[in-house]
Design a binder for these strands. Structure first.
Length: 867
DNA sequence: GGAGGTGACGTACC
DNA sequence: ACCGGTACGTCACCTCC
């Protein structure tokens, strides 16, 4: 039979000693299809130079005799072929050694210790990776499949009759075909429990949300009177709840089962409770139960249905570009959907009042609605990433950016005829980790002050363009200076001043990055054209988002609020181009990190250190050039320079930018970040010097850009943050400190009259490790201990909230005054004044030679006098 | 038993 | 174990007198 097919979930199985890929997807009618296919598995034996043909022939004969009988399985070398390949850019002769079962490639590699063999490679790729490379059946692309329909066939042990799919096909031929419409079936879920520790409390209810489907399953009902909420369905008890959950998943039969933190919570919890009640959680299309990886970072897999923990994708790909201070569902939903969790105060089910249960159902349902919304929102990004990386979406959605970069490289080696490098061994990793650090980027020393009329230039994808431009990588690194090669600036590595040299002959690693950068440019152009055509893009943005657009047209944050405007569905093509452009950009930006990542196959400190040496050189040179032009430099960090216009008009400044660009090599490019009306830089708390990485700017439209200040630090209380923000805003608007001073006085007065709400005084700090591992017992550790005592769930990675209270006895340490938000007490006025308010604003007023301490002390005396 | 230096810790910038 | 160097700032801890 023939069918059109889009692959979604990949797994493999062994049958009669061989590996088969079992791929679940859909046909163009939305029917669920399983295809089964095999592919040859092999590893590479790279030969030493200058081996004679006869020597190679006898080696091949020797290798062909290898067979293994371990792990209850017979594997043999089935075939050996001699090939001309490249390894790390070098031409090599290599033997392609085919084996029966991919799981034995490692053991076969161990048997290839012959002196003629230089290296063994390619035995550490997963079978699915191997399969996708061999058969070019890339996830989420469309294919025309020729194959044999399996209908209660005995082939593969009668597998097709067990699988809950519409067709099961044994593949004969695969041909790529044009893209067709694909709207995935998505089911979001969320559970509510009586305890946070996995399996330790009852599961009270489970919500399910899909297209035109809402459900809350529960056996907890108020006063045995059933609710009016039409989406609530009652079951007998917890065991039936679990059974019903499985039943609904099977009935809806989604491509994606989506949760938020569901790898670490919902699915493990369901499993634990199912075990307790002896319920089979047979969610898999083959009837299997979810499988969990062990370790700190749990991964939960369901056969045939892609389980997505959308938190993981958001965290690894987008968190650095987000403004949310935590990755809680509430904050993330607010940022991307403009919606938040329903109010509900958690308590043990035995303490929930009769009339509170309906609120609890709504709360539970809404979490699934938000999760569903986030999946919808990130679907273009998720699917574009998957298509680009070419690994299954299950992996791409969980991988860190380094792993995604590596997978991209692995899937694109073929056109360079490259043999893949191996993963580093444990000892290599520790060696890499323990090596001395190399020098990072350059940060300009600012002078405190208020400045007017500034411009900021920055380099676009600076690290990437340097890697491309100077051909930096493991395979292009030369052992010594050669004629006509790239030479890094002088740098220090392992305490030695040195330089590194890189070949001018293009290497596959920088070449791939060059392609990524070019594709990113291409799709960015398409995106712009599409926006102009549809014209409905800018209208949906807030002022701040338009501003972001100016600096970076595909910042993912731009996608905020689209759900509300209905843009998501009507402008799907535009969203896809945006997501694609964005994915290439993120990939390009992660490339440098990959070079210096200890777990990378293509790790290369020399290249990473050289990249940074070039980064420093270009930044410093740009700063010098700006100064030479007569513009006073105010700021500079890594890839940017900020300066005073010095009577230059904007046009002249842009002309100057053009001049600077003409001198830059290759794809390196300096661009205008923006013009600013005013900017403020303050001194450090200790000493006179200007603080680096701390500044605030205002543009002509009155929009603020604040970096590094307490305003943007989550471990300061809201009162200090909001006050500082207001003061910065007023100063930058007015150009003087007069009004700002008044708002400060007002806040101090309120603080002293105890009019400040405790909410504004809560300090939030993350518990970064288990309580017992802290050497210094700081306030947040005390707060965490108090939470433990009160049995409030708290563990590594959680935010701890507390405030500093007045104490009866004069205690010296801050930690002795810590109280949890639920503890009664009065806020410690002295503390908030001296340790939150003043430090946040002191240096700002210092710029105007206003000494806040004197004013505050004066006030204090005055208030004391009043009493 | 207070001053002052240092280290641990958390967070931000790019 | 899943990017890492530069930088700021707080608080506890330690040493010194």
């Amino acid at each position: 039979m023939k069918l059109n097919f889009i692959p979604i979930d990949y797994s493999y199985f062994d049958f009669e000693g061989r590996n088969y890929a079992k791929i679940i997807g859909r046909d163009e009618n939305g029917k669920r299809v399983c295809i089964i296919d095999s592919c040859p598995v092999y590893l590479w034996a790279v030969l030493k130079d200058e081996l004679s043909r006869s020597k190679i022939n006898s080696l091949i004969k020797e290798i062909e005799k290898i067979s293994l009988d371990t792990k209850g399985r017979k594997t043999e070398v089935e075939k050996v072929e001699l090939r001309e390949k490249n390894f790390l850019g070098k031409k090599v002769k290599a033997l392609k050694v085919f084996a029966t079962n991919y799981k034995d490639l490692h053991d076969i590699a161990d048997k290839l210790g012959m002196p003629e063999i230089e290296k063994r490679r390619g035995y550490d790729l997963g079978f699915i990776t191997h399969y996708i490379i061999e058969k070019k059946l890339k996830p989420l692309s469309w294919y025309e499949i020729d194959g044999e329909l399996l209908n209660n066939s005995q082939e593969f042990g009668g597998m097709d009759s067990v699988l809950e799919v519409d067709f099961c096909v044994k593949v004969e031929k695969i041909r790529e075909t044009e893209t067709k419409k694909f709207k995935p079936k998505v089911l979001a879920y969320d559970i509510e429990t009586d305890a946070f520790k996995i399996g330790e409390g009852e599961i009270l209810m489970i919500s399910l949300v899909s297209d035109n489907f809402k459900k809350v399953l529960t056996y907890k009902s108020p006063k045995e009177i059933e609710t009016d909420l039409e989406y609530v369905e009652y079951v007998k008890d917890e065991a039936e709840l679990l059974e019903k959950f499985v039943e609904y998943v099977k009935k809806i039969s989604p491509d994606f089962l989506v949760g938020y933190f569901s790898d670490g919570f919902d699915l493990p919890y369901l499993k634990a409770r199912a075990e307790k009640f002896n319920v089979k959680l047979s969610l898999g299309l083959d009837g299997s139960q979810p499988k969990f990886s062990n370790g700190l970072n749990i991964i939960a897999k369901i056969n045939g249905i892609v389980h997505i923990d959308i938190l993981k994708f958001i965290r690894s790909v987008y968190s650095q570009y987000m403004q949310s201070e935590t990755l809680s569902l509430n904050e993330v939903a607010k940022e991307f959907l403009g919606d938040s969790k329903k109010e509900f105060k958690h308590k043990h089910s035995s303490k929930i009042a009769q009339d509170e249960w309906e609120k609890y159902y709504e709360y539970n349902l809404h979490d699934s609605i938000l999760t569903y919304g986030l999946f919808e929102k990130f679907w273009p990004d998720l699917s574009e990433f998957t298509k680009i990386i070419q690994e299954p979406i299950f992996n791409v959605s969980r991988n860190g950016m380094s792993a995604n970069v590596e997978d991209y490289i692995i899937h694109h080696l073929e056109k360079f005829n490259e043999i893949p490098e191996k993963r580093p061994m444990y000892n290599e990793i520790s060696e890499r980790k323990s090596r001395e650090k190399y020098e990072g980027a350059f940060v300009f020393q600012p002078t405190p002050g208020l400045y007017e009329n500034l411009a900021i230039f920055d380099f676009t994808s600076m690290h990437a363009s340097i890697i491309v431009n100077y051909n930096l990588s493991k395979s292009t690194l030369l052992e010594k200076n050669e004629k006509n090669c790239y030479e890094s600036p002088e740098l220090e590595l392992n305490g030695k001043k040195t330089k590194f040299y890189f070949s001018k002959k293009s290497g596959f690693f920088p070449e791939l990055l060059k392609e990524i950068v070019e594709l990113r440019k291409k799709y960015k152009r398409e995106l712009k054209a599409n926006e102009q055509k549809t014209g409905n893009f800018l209208t949906n943005l807030t002022g701040n988002q338009i501003k972001e657009l100016k600096t970076d047209a595909v910042n993912p944050i731009l996608n905020k609020g689209e759900q509300k405007t209905g843009n998501f569905l009507t402008n799907l093509a535009g969203n896809q181009i945006k997501a694609r452009s964005n994915a290439f950009k993120l990939l390009a930006n992660a490339y440098y990190g990959y070079l210096g990542f200890f777990g990378a196959r293509y790790y290369c400190v020399e290249a990473a250190a050289s990249t940074l040496a070039f980064v420093r050189k270009y930044n410093k040179e740009t700063i010098e050039n700006v100064a030479k032009e007569g513009c006073k430099v105010i700021f500079g960090d890594t890839d940017s320079v900020g300066f005073l216009l010095n009577k230059k008009s904007k046009e002249e400044t842009l002309k100057f930018l053009k001049k600077l660009n003409e001198k830059l090599p290759g794809i390196m490019e300096l661009e205008l970040e923006d013009f600013y009306k005013r900017g403020i830089w303050v001194s450090k708390r200790t000493g006179e010097a200007g603080a680096k990485k701390k500044y605030a700017l205002i543009d002509e439209q009155g929009r603020l850009k604040i970096r590094g200040f307490e305003t943007v630090r989550r471990d300061w209380c809201a009162l200090a943050r909001e006050l500082q923000n207001n003061i910065i805003k007023q100063i930058l608007k007015d150009g003087n400190e007069k009004k700002a001073l008044e708002s400060l006085k007002e806040i101090i007065k309120k603080l002293k009259q105890r009019e400040i709400n405790i909410d504004k005084l809560i300090i939030r700090t993350q518990l970064k490790k288990p309580i017992s591992e802290y050497k210094n017992i700081s306030p947040h550790v005390i707060a965490a201990k108090k939470m433990m005592e009160q049995e409030i769930p708290i563990s590594q990675g959680n935010l701890v909230e507390y405030y500093i209270a007045e104490t009866k006895d004069k205690k010296k340490l801050v930690r002795d005054k810590v109280k949890l938000p639920n503890e009664k007490g009065e806020y410690n006025m002295e503390y908030y004044l001296a340790h939150q308010i003043l430090p946040a604003v002191e240096n700002i007023f210092q710029v105007f030679n206003v000494n806040i301490k004197e004013i505050v002390d004066g006030k204090k005396q005055m208030t004391l006098g009043e009493f």
